[in-house]
Amino acid sequence: MTITERKKKKILQAIIFCITFFYWMQIVHAQQKKGPVPFKVIAFYTAQNDQAHISFVHEANNWFPAMAKQYHFIYDSTSNWNNLNTAFLSQYQVVIFLDTRPQDSIQRIAFEKYMKDGGAWLGFHFSAFALTPSSYQQNWNWYHNDFLGSGEYSSNTWRPTSAILRVEDKKFPATKYLPDTFSSAPNEWYKWKNDLRKNPDIKILLSIDTSSFPLGTGPKPYEIWHSGYYPVVWTNKDYKMLYVNMGHNDIDYEHRTNTTLSFTFSNTLQNKLIIDGLLWLGSRNKKR
């Protein structure tokens, strides 16, 4: 091979390298521009009977789509609980219960399988409610005792009022950017029969700070809390889940207008808790 031929070969190799490098960079740039694949969220709701819960569901179904655009995830919602089956749930990385929980045994089995297989869940307020006797009896031990850990509902404050919440764990993804204490949106706060502090699987993230007392306005004396320990946000270490007790708007029942007097998603710091929690649930890491 002559010197001229060797030069031509080197030039050709250089050209091929440059073309290959150019197209490789174009692919990398396109992938970076596209960003990560968005996770999908499905929210189940009932939105019946209690106007405060109905108001919250409507509010949530307006707020979450706006957050989905801002934080790049996909949000769907349905009131058809028959969709709580393995085939349907396989399309989604996160399940939300906005108010109630499934009553049908087949739906319950599908949800338990989904969670045990690595699915993620966010539950609001009434989704943890269970009381025997009532329309929502405690007849699902895995969900209320093993998964949530709270057991049956015991009592609540009235009327819906803001509380000072204390962050119990500053390292958790949903709470790491919150101040030590902050004021919540107005809410009806629940008390549970089980002491979550005694459950090694439960990690309490937020509780009601003692500076909140007395909490509630009555008129019944037992609807006003003067002392005690009340967890309001927690996770189960064995699952990718988050329960938040918020989700009960204040309603004008007295004048029978059913007008919404307060909104759950009106509080910036509380919203930070919820969206950071959802982004953690939607992440690919199956464990904390």
Rank of each mutant, 00 (worst) to 15 (best):
L12P: 04
I19T: 06
Y23R: 04
Q26R: 10
Q26L: 14
V28Q: 09
V41N: 12
V41F: 06
V41P: 11
F44M: 11
Y45P: 03
T46P: 03
Q48E: 15
D50I: 14
Q51E: 15
A52K: 13
A52V: 06
H53M: 15
S55N: 15
F56N: 09
N61Y: 06
A68I: 11
A68Y: 11
K69Y: 12
Y71H: 12
Y75T: 06
T78R: 06
N80W: 05
W81M: 04
N83Q: 10
L84A: 13
T86S: 12
Q91W: 05
F97N: 07
F97P: 05
I106C: 03
Q107T: 01
A110E: 00
K113V: 11
M115R: 04
L122D: 01
L122F: 06
F124V: 02
L131G: 03
T132L: 05
P133I: 10
Q138M: 14
N141P: 06
H144R: 10
D146N: 13
G149F: 13
T157S: 15
T157I: 14
T157C: 13
T157F: 13
V167H: 12
P173S: 04
T175A: 06
L178F: 10
T181K: 14
N187F: 08
N187W: 04
E188N: 08
W189A: 05
K193I: 13
P200W: 04
P200K: 08
I204Q: 01
L205P: 03
I208K: 02
S212L: 02
S212M: 02
P214H: 07
L215Y: 05
Y222P: 09
V232K: 03
V232H: 08
V232L: 09
K237E: 07
V244L: 02
I251D: 11
R256Y: 06
T259Q: 13
L261F: 01
S262W: 08
S266W: 03
T268W: 05
K272A: 07
I274E: 00
I275S: 00
I275E: 00
N285P: 00
